[in-house]
């Protein structure tokens, strides 16, 4: 499931930035073209694509740096929601 999550996140980034060489561990904020608007787009994408709400305590830039980090974030938020500790 996490592989599939990663693929969907990678596809979104590649749709916005075609031609970028993207490794799941590469820090996208160091690539030079990502700005705060894109950070907001990423939040909206993750929430819509995976039908979740990212809680405040997870709203840290570090969670959005890599495809791997975002996949882990999605898994954590989903686990939190199913454990009843729903996002804020």
């Amino acid at each position: 499931m996490s592989e599939q999550t990663g693929t969907r996140i990678r596809d979104f980034i590649l749709t916005r930035f075609p031609g970028v060489e993207l490794d799941d561990r590469v820090d996208i904020f160091t690539l030079g073209f990502v700005n705060s608007l894109f950070a907001m787009e990423l939040v909206m994408f993750l929430e819509k694509e995976f039908d979740l709400r990212i809680p405040n305590e997870e709203m840290s830039l570090d969670n959005f740096r890599t495809v791997e980090g975002m996949s882990a974030l999605v898994a954590r938020v989903r686990a939190g929601a199913s454990a009843g500790a729903g996002p804020a």
Partner: peptide, 27 residues
Amino acid sequence: AQHALTAAGGARPAARAGAPAAPEGST
């Protein structure tokens, strides 16, 4: 313009050339 350029595959060359990205938070 930045959005149009990157959507056309222009992000990578701009980043390589060290050209400035969209002004961070210039909003």
